[in-house]
Amino acid sequence: MKKYNVKTGISYPKIGAMGKTGTWRIFKPILDKNKCIKCLRCWVFCPESAIKRRNDSVEIDYDYCKGCGVCANVCPVKAIVMAKEER
């Protein structure tokens, strides 16, 4: 990462700037890859960028997923279900 020599306060980009936001989660999205039709709607609507796109397939990043449930709600084939988080 290039650092800039400026006198004002400057913040640099970082994944997890607020820490592991996955700890906020109460319900956890679980993806059934057999049901998935690869429409990528969960990826485009995820407010957290916590659904990673691997070519046409998707993966959920549980370190940062806040468990809002938008992905489960936009999935047209219900391949994502929300389950109570167990810690």
């Binding site: 607020m18 820490g19 592991k20 407010p47 957290e48 960028s49």
Partner: peptide, 12 residues
């Protein structure tokens, strides 16, 4: 927009 930000869950 990187993951691990301070937005509420479900933020538009």
């Amino acid at each position: 927009v990187l993951p691990g930000n301070a937005a509420c869950p479900g933020c538009p």
